[in-house]
Design a protein around this nucleic acid. Sequence first.
DNA 1: AATAGCGATGCGTTTTTTGCACCACCTGTT
DNA 2: AACAGGTGGTGCAAAAAACGCATCGCTATT
Lengths: 309, 309
Amino acid sequence: MRFMTSLRFIDAVAREKSIRKAAEKLAITSTALNRRILQIEDEIGQPLFERLASGVRLNTAGELFVQHIRAQQADLARVQSQIADLSGIRRGHVRVASGTETLRHFLPDVIARYRSEHKAVTFDISRQHGEAAEAALASLETDLALIFEPIRRSDFQTIATTRQAVYCCMAETHELASLDSIRLHHLLDVPVILPTMHSGIRQLLNVGLMRRNMQLATMLETDSQEFTQNYLRNEQVVGFQIPIGLPQDMAEGRPVNGLIARPIDSVDVPQGTLHIGHLRGRVLPVAAAKFMDLMITELGDRFPKDLDQ
Amino acid sequence: MRFMTSLRFIDAVAREKSIRKAAEKLAITSTALNRRILQIEDEIGQPLFERLASGVRLNTAGELFVQHIRAQQADLARVQSQIADLSGIRRGHVRVASGTETLRHFLPDVIARYRSEHKAVTFDISRQHGEAAEAALASLETDLALIFEPIRRSDFQTIATTRQAVYCCMAETHELASLDSIRLHHLLDVPVILPTMHSGIRQLLNVGLMRRNMQLATMLETDSQEFTQNYLRNEQVVGFQIPIGLPQDMAEGRPVNGLIARPIDSVDVPQGTLHIGHLRGRVLPVAAAKFMDLMITELGDRFPKDLDQ
DNA sequence: AATAGCGATGCGTTTTTTGCACCACCTGTT
DNA sequence: AACAGGTGGTGCAAAAAACGCATCGCTATT
């Protein structure tokens, strides 16, 4: 899109906070880029950047203008996607921000299913915890977000939710594996791997622990679900996960690859809510809107009684 | 704004439905314009116009794209206005659509008051009846609308309203001038000048007439309030107006330049509502938002007890 | 059949954009 | 205090893009 060039360039400079660095990324010389910016500033009638010794920084006017540019880019993407949809070929680009829970099984499955019908749609999956995902939506860096507890901003528009209990994961040889449902007191003195504070799972656990004034024997804290799942095979420790992050068999109580999952009694730890949504007031590109529909369908298939639309 | 050129051109062609005509208006050759359009269509990957023997016409994709262009232009105007506001100088352009009622006294007064403080703000006043004004808002051709009864579209967002009774205007020598309040039966066989069907005043009158199964002795129908007011001096006929369209003295029952106004009893003809508002969901340019504030203040001054915010 | 109006295209000219070399300036290090 | 390495800004010539003229092919009207 030729007519977007200058605007894209300004956006790039704002991100890089340096004309020369941005020029390198954009594969042009810094002088050409510099002059484009001077020209736009001239047309606006006011500078958009403060010039510092170490580079440039947006001033207030620049902040406003860059915000406009991003909104404009997002709307253009929507229109393009809608136009492409007219000709039958659905093309486009969908950007999803999500916590780690859905990255293992849910998103790969849904995307594969979507791509099997629409090869011309590409994806951008960024792993981000709730607060960052909401910020990414607001700055139009992403189209959709999947957030597991809690929603903080009022400009997040939830489209669908599903209730998810917290499960304990462990080797099937673990002493707690024989229980159907786990109470918090079972976990006393059992070594556990906890997700970091950013995680919704951790926050739900905290609620339960605070209520009972308990502490867990935390052997390790990590934001990697993958590490956790793999480590459980090596030592008799307990990790935590929600059903959407587990293979279907494990979520239903059967062992998979030597691991097994057991729900924590909701008397001890409340169930959490997984939210699917987007920025309030935004009209999504067709591809993103349809992908969201598919995610919701898939959620309904996996958790028929816990889906809310 | 250089980066808007191609988009502005497309908008112009869409309006003119002809490349050559648009080129003339834009003061370039048709070939340059033609090539810009071909280039954009090439970048979009699909034609935006249908080529007819008599010119061009937007296809579906074009409709979508032009809508995007207009939204983009409106948002750019807002950002520019906001940026200008940062530097203390309020500059900008305010576009108002309104029926004839407010064009005589209200809008001229308010604009003069506004311009006395902000000389850098320019105005565009388009006289349009309610339905057309709403359409102009929706297509982003205007920023604000003043509509006297009724509001038809759900995307019109009312910001303030004021109740207005319908008044009869006549020469002070007219036989009805001695009454304080006029009943519909007084108007039987009195020659009247009616506003056209588009007018809210006419529609309110119709409500009263239908209810009583009456007809007026319509000597003339016009959409020009100016003509009506001037004609009343020449013949013993009655015209209709709402207070906001009258000089303050006349609205308060005193004669002005040989003319006098008397309210119709609200038992016969219901009061109407004058709405000030904009397109739902739009963020207005600073200049327009502040102008709207001033209009509302002014309304409050003129009709203290009938203003609703 | 002739005509008038439309959008599209080839080509030479004009305008705009780009890249190179270099300047002035600031910052942190030697 | 001198210096090296970074920043944005500018003069000038080359490259690229946009433009205008002449002209084509097509269609609807006369």
